[in-house]
Write a protein that binds this DNA or RNA. Structure first.
Lengths: 141, 141
DNA sequence: CTGTATCCGGGAAGATACTG
DNA sequence: CAGTATCTTCCCGGATACAG
């Protein structure tokens, strides 16, 4: 059941046990609305966004205000930061406290769902390190 | 060292222990050339591509020919499939055997580096399932 | 069967200015 | 300080036609 277990035989790609290929609803950067029917795609979807990994990593150290992100991510434009925060919030990974003061004060923090990403983020980090180490060994010089 | 450990204090976002924010080299969909200095970004980079998770999942079941992918992923255009296979190959996750026959025959398979992605892919799958289950419970009806 | 060359549409990210 | 509104740029993904 290995060498010639051609894909053609099953009509569908099986993702780690799940049977469901990405459909048209999945755009090139996975910006569909969580309708992806494959768990792997779902995970990648919520992480898709240039600054999302950075935002989440920061929140794992504690609540952060918008200006904190802006200061820590000087290359990110305010508009994009705001949008990605909104997306993460819409996906349920983060939430915010809006203080009724002036000037405005907002604080973002991880929800239980966001906190549940820790193992996955560690695995992403682990494999990234493995990849870099692997390349250093294979492509010496 | 939690609530007010503002990002502004460190100038840089720390990714799970690594200190290095994504720089300009990281385009909106992480298509820089693996120069990302953050391991998490590296992992997400090699997985970025609409059909890459599907391609890798299929290869975990054994070698596959281009036409197998085409048959299993009817919504993917041949051009994109070819390009993503090339990218995966360039990143060292997969390799191919080119048979010198006519009509041409090519077979792709996972390299050791590609095989090493299994834990990460399982974690992606796990979290995706968790997310879906979580949403079913929180947003009943 | 496999892979390449063009051309196009759409959406993310960025820049800037403005509001409360 | 936080968020919004425009406008621009870039490039992935898709369609089609063609070559070996």
């Amino acid at each position: 059941m290995f060498p010639e277990a051609s894909l053609a035989d099953r009509q569908n790609i099986s993702y780690m046990g799940q049977i469901n290929p990405p459909k048209k609803s999945v755009t090139y950067s996975r910006k569909m609305d969580i309708k992806a029917d494959c768990p792997m795609e779902v995970s990648l979807h919520v992480l898709t966004g240039k600054w999302k990994p950075a935002i989440l990593s920061a929140l794992f150290r504690g609540p952060q205000r918008p200006r904190d992100f802006a200061a820590g991510l000087p290359d990110a434009s305010k508009r994009v930061l705001t949008r990605q925060l909104n997306e993460l919030e819409a996906h349920g990974l983060i939430a915010k406290t809006v203080f009724d003061v002036l000037p405005p004060k907002v604080e973002f923090y991880l929800t239980p769902l966001g906190l549940s990403m820790k193992p996955l983020m560690e695995e992403l980090n682990n494999w990234g390190l493995h990849f870099e180490k692997f390349n250093r060994e294979i492509l010496p010089k």
